[in-house]
Design a protein around this nucleic acid. Structure first.
Lengths: 182, 182
DNA sequence: AGGCTCATGTAACCGGTTACATGATTAT
DNA sequence: ATAATCATGTAACCGGTTACATGAGCCT
């Protein structure tokens, strides 16, 4: 369970509403953890039951009222335990339907796989563009934290850039190999 | 749902038992789709209900009897529909708990993150070694299919190699950046 | 007798998705 | 009016995990 822990992570920066959290997710970590708004509200309820967060109603005059969630001491402890836990990224959790299709593409004309790979490159490029905006939005939230925190944000974003770059390179190489077939 | 479709993919090569499928998965596609043995049996039942597969009991003298599954015409059609469907790999399905930890590591000493990244590199190397064995096991199954099919297997494996190489490079760069902090 | 490979499942659970549902306030 | 933004949820579903359970036949 990583969504709940990353919610705790964001709340450790400052208190936030479910709506704020949804925006924070989509403007920073969505390239490695896309979180649905509805799911965030569900997780907040679960975290409340575990006493990792509390909330208070904030009445606003110009906007609808909102529930401002804060992390508890218990929540902070849970967060730090999670942070220092070992994780095995490579043995589990990699589900790549696209690669599965590549794997099984021997039964159809090479041209179809080339098209699929071209589409993939387009998706990559599109995603690359979207990711360019992430540093801006991180800058927007950047006021909350010190310079050192930003370095870690940068590291995770670098992974994203490197990954997408690798994907494009691989797809181009693959297309070349398939074109040699014909 | 990609597990069920990749089961159909394997069955399109030849008829297999659940046990065979589990071995085929773990010796070929496990680096981008780890499948539990029990899950494979569950999926086979579902595929049977949808009339995508049929089975017959094979009585063996030296070994326990087994259920040999075969793909039906309906199953083949379903498989090809899946193959030619568009997929958006980048907007969904990327859940990376490790990157989440990197993202939130600003609140702890850089040394701890460096350790985490070193462990990550070790995991990568270990995984890299495991992946070296995949071409051999693909060769073992290779008798089933023609040379062209093998190219696609190679492409998907190349993705794996490139990915892991990228991971190691990124982790090394990140460690350097963190060491500059101290 | 003990361990290995071969072989097949069931049950409880869980994180996450999809779709649906609602309502306040502000700006045009 | 009506669209956009702000704001919060529920219900049904689903793919996959974890843990458990069983048993045949072979080898030493």
């Amino acid at each position: 369970m990583s969504l709940s822990h990353s919610i705790l992570g964001f709340l450790s920066y400052q208190s936030m509403t479910g709506y704020d959290l949804a925006k924070a997710f989509s403007s920073s970590v969505r390239f490695f953890w896309y979180a649905q708004t509805s799911q965030i509200y569900l997780e907040l309820n679960k975290l409340e039951k575990k006493e990792f967060v509390t909330w208070e109603i904030i009445i606003q005059t110009e906007k609808p009222s909102k529930k401002l969630y804060s992390i508890t001491q218990k929540g902070k402890e849970e967060f730090f335990v999670w942070l220092s836990q070992e994780n095995d990224e490579f043995s589990k959790g990699n589900k790549n339907a696209f690669l599965m299709k590549v794997f099984f593409s021997g039964c159809r004309p090479p041209k179809e796989c080339i098209t699929m790979l071209s589409d993939f490159i387009n998706d990559c490029s599109h995603y690359q563009d979207e990711m360019q905006q992430i540093p801006d939005s991180i800058g927007h939230y950047g006021g909350l934290v010190d310079q050192e925190q930003k370095l870690y944000w940068q590291l995770s974003a670098d992974f994203g850039y490197s990954y997408i770059h690798m994907c494009i390179d691989w797809a181009r190489r693959s297309i070349k190999k398939l074109e040699e077939l014909t």
